[in-house]
Amino acid sequence: MYTQGLDQAGKDQEAGAETPEHLEAFQKRIDAEEKIEAKDWMPEAYRRTLVRQISQHAHSEIIGMQPEGNWLTRAPSLKRKVILLAKVQDEAGHGLYLYSAAETLGVSRGQMVADLLSGKAKYSSIFNYPTLTWADIGAIGWLVDGAAIMNQIPLCRCSYGPYARAMVRVCKEESFHQRQGFDIMVSLCRGTAEQKAMAQDALNRWWWPSLMMFGPNDANSKHSAQSMAWKIKRFSNDELRQKFVDATVPQADFLGITMPDDALVFDKDSGHYSFGEIDWQEFMDVVAGNGPCNRQRLEKRNKAHNDGAWVREAAQAYAEKQAACAAA
């Protein structure tokens, strides 16, 4: 998931069919771990929460193609080029399945895309950081896909069936991406001193933003409770962040590079790593649109969309002509 943990319940909607009996029956199904399907009755707030979360996730997949696509033409070997291109292609595929999953909730892809292009919809702010060296491609696979997996594995059990099923497919590919990213880091760390320095520099820049991917601390994430009750979310932001840190620090040790956090220490009593305070001001700035690449990312998406307008119109016009011929 690349949704920032900002998912929150939608506004209470008009009572309509949402009688206490209906709501109670719905919650019983959730508690019994039944999957909710597109045609089933669901509270409006549940539907809206999912639309927001799934569409943010889809947008993140699409915007996430940009920082990695940035190194496609410069990938240092044909093998790495193929792996990176296949990865970027997978992300486009993830975007497609997720838009389809969101569409089952009654929102069109066109509307979701329009919200992304206008800046109204959010996507994961990790993709507002720049990829400055080849090592950033390794760091993204290792850390960003790694964090995404932590978030997404529980989503495979999400109460909403179409989302859960999309996640099963996505997770398989994300774990492949994570391993490939780590493999780039291994090559760099076993390489020349310059390559290793490149790897350390990438870790320095990507570590904190990766931790921010899990969203605000639990104390500041009051809307997660409803998502947990609905079994859209299974673990809190802080729980997932801790799992990620615990899994990732030993990998950095293996690579022989260090996290840019002086406070990072293994706590024997708890069996977890404790780590320093995240710069939440930076997080809020990037979410608010003031990260290094927010404007660039949206401009690029808008340019592609606008440059393609005549092409989509042509396809539409051609399809209409064909339909008219067939009807005649």
């Binding site: 699409i62 696509g69 291109l85 970027v88 975007g95 497609l96 592609a304 969309h305 393609g308």
Partner: peptide
Amino acid sequence: VTAKPELE
């Protein structure tokens, strides 16, 4: 890549 008129 990322400049195409449609996701497909």
